[in-house]
């Protein structure tokens, strides 16, 4: 899922400084699951903004709503009317939601309420870890299912660097060296020879270095 984190309140306050009526809009997709932008977080954010503005002597009126998703136009449709009562919208969805609102409703001033951080898993309560970087050209088939693009600080494709010590990454010793893990995984399976294959320079275009990425499936298109 997409992991996000609540944006520092002072930054949000700064963005909405000129306004007196603001809609805080949550999303029940990924950001709700990772406790960054669901119903509860919307409530917290709205309360925090009101409190801060009250203290500064310029009270703020907030509206609160949470959509099923903000990355589909049909779920966003009600926003058009809803937003009329407000001068601005703080979207608690990931950056995708903010962008789609901006795309669909040029008249709405939309500001981010979270910082979108990575694609991650939730291995334990209150803990999220990056597992994929969406590079568009999966190599997990040769690395035992563990991704060195997302999980190696140097994106190495040909085995552990000289800083791998005791199975730990030199950059942050609390993080395991993913290449060490790959080595152990393949070693246990008797597939170490895979690591001896030269992994040629990667084509980074599918990773987004070729401009914004698109996916089209003609057969699913309507009309």
């Amino acid at each position: 899922m997409i992991i996000a984190e609540r944006r520092p309140i002072p930054k949000v306050l700064k963005a909405i400084e000129p306004y007196e009526r603001v809609l805080v809009l949550g999303c029940r997709g990924c950001v709700a699951v990772c406790s960054a932008g669901g119903d509860r977080e919307v409530e917290t954010m709205a309360a925090a903004l009101r409190l801060a503005r009250k203290l500064s002597g310029r009270p703020l009126k907030t509206g609160e709503a949470t959509f099923i998703r903000q990355c589909d136009p049909e779920y966003l449709a009600p926003l058009k009317d809803m937003a009329r009562e407000y001068e601005a919208v703080v979207s608690m969805a990931c950056g995708v939601g903010v962008n789609l609102i901006a795309d669909l409703f040029p008249e709405i001033r939309v500001y981010p309420g979270v910082d979108t951080t990575f694609y991650g898993a939730n291995p334990a309560l209150g803990e999220w870890q990056e597992k994929c970087r969406g590079c568009g050209d999966c190599i997990l088939d040769v690395t035992g299912g563990l991704c060195p693009i997302a999980r190696c600080a140097k994106n190495l494709l040909n085995g552990p660097c000289g800083g791998s010590q005791g199975g730990r990454c030199e950059i942050r010793p609390e993080v395991p060296c993913v290449w060490h893990q790959i080595y152990e995984r393949l070693s246990a399976r008797g597939e170490l020879d895979r690591l001896m294959n030269f992994f040629p320079a990667k084509d980074w275009r599918p990773a987004g270095h070729g401009g914004p990425r698109e996916r089209v499936r003609e057969d699913l298109k309507m009309g």
Binding site: N158, G159, P160, C161, G162, G163, S164, Q165, G166, G167, C177, H180, Y183, E184, S187, L192, L195, M196, F198
Partner: peptide, 14 residues
């Protein structure tokens, strides 16, 4: 001197 030790020489070969 880095780990995994057995792989170091393999990486050298690479």
């Amino acid at each position: 001197f880095a780990d995994p030790f057995e792989f170091r020489v393999k990486r050298l070969e690479k």
